[in-house]
């Protein structure tokens, strides 16, 4: 009977664990291979600006003279195009997604001459959220 099909579906699920999660208390863990927050590794980058030219969202601002890389987190669409084009493999996509922010700010990463690195994250969300789980 047609009526009991829905009933049986409902009855079956009434005794199961819910498939939903209690979101703010249990954050969703992204699956392996998810395209999350863009991670920039200082040190390799030669500031060739190839990534900034290719970025479809214009989220990267690279200054050749000042040796700075600016990532606009709110523009970045995590497409991974910069990961593909960078000759030095300076970028990778983390699995975790960037956290929500309340103000618009970009993240400036400064690379001093020599090989010492000073990652100076300006944005509130920091730079460490992108570690794979």
């Amino acid at each position: 009977m047609a009526f009991f099909q829905m009933t049986s579906l409902v009855m079956k699920w009434i005794f199961r664990k819910p498939v939903t999660s209690r979101y703010p208390f249990e954050p969703r863990v992204p699956l392996a291979g998810s395209r999350g927050k863009l991670v920039f590794t200082d040190g390799n980058c030669v500031y060739c600006t190839a990534c900034a030219k290719k970025c479809p969202a214009n989220a990267l601002i690279v200054s050749r003279d000042k040796k700075t890389m600016e990532i606009d987190r709110l523009r970045c669409i995590s497409c991974g195009y910069c990961v593909d084009v960078c000759p030095k493999k300076s970028f990778s996509l983390g699995e975790a997604h960037s956290s929500p922010v309340t103000t618009k700010s970009s993240e400036l990463q400064i690379h001093k001459s020599g090989n010492e690195e000073t990652g100076a994250p300006k944005a509130a969300e920091g730079n460490s959220t992108s570690a794979p789980k």
């Binding site: 992204p30 699956l31 392996a32 291979g33 998810s34 395209r35 669409i77 995590s78 497409c79 991974g80 996509l93």
Partner: peptide, 12 residues
């Protein structure tokens, strides 16, 4: 979809 492409609705 997320596990294979990295995106849930925008596959990219």
């Amino acid at each position: 979809i997320e596990a294979t492409t990295g995106g849930r609705v925008i596959f990219g």
